[in-house]
Design a protein around this nucleic acid. Sequence first.
DNA 1: ATGTCTACCACAGGTAGA
Length: 256
Amino acid sequence: MKIATYNVNGINGRLPVLLRWLDEAAPDIVCLQELKAPQDRFPQAAIEAAGYGAIWHGQSRWNGVAILARGCDPLETRRGLPGDPTDEQSRYLEAAVDGVLVGGLYLPNGNPRPGPRFDYKLRWFDRLEARMAELIGMDAPVVIAGDYNVMPNELDVHKPERWVDDALFAPEVRAAYARLLDQGWIDALRTLHPDERIYTFWHYFRGAFERDAGLRIDHHLLNPVAAKRLAGAGVDRFARAWEKTSDHAPVWITLD
DNA sequence: ATGTCTACCACAGGTAGA
């Protein structure tokens, strides 16, 4: 079973890229982020024609997450993180697919730091930590995948010294991510490729992709039951090279 | 500091986010 996460940066603008990638990569489950479309502008017909059932949580202009499942409809288990009823942002969806519980998330960017956006990021992280504490011990495999907006370690940043004050690499944020690992979650790609420089995002500016000046910010965290079945993990860099593509590349894992 | 790209709303391009 192949489970992918892909920050599409606008699902309607990227629809040709997304459909091409679905066709070439044939993932079983996909978590999408940054739909940048209101609820009624999700391209359901095109996704369905590609063979995927979908649930989504849209939002005008920003954010927006979806879960796709090949040949079936994801069974939604949660929409939004618990812990703050005033939070209107569409950043978390959870569903059961084929016996696997999948969480798809789009963690707040948090820049500029310090500031209210950064505070929101830390609060959101606290709520995620609480939800993931509830999920880690499940008997079923659990995969929490998405754009975490965190580079966990220096190996995950092309120029770590330039990012120390940024909300994606700040000590508080790396500590929050480390607390998830302390709960027992496994960073799938890093576990299978402990020493490799692997990026999932490259800025549009200044030829970042051509220079491979990237970041690893899209992750799959696996509970122990899922980790036992982990067989492979990788980044579909080829899709980042396409015309009119997202600034992120799709990231995937395979479970036996 | 800069750079590039997106969507919205609405029909131009200003604005905000990443």
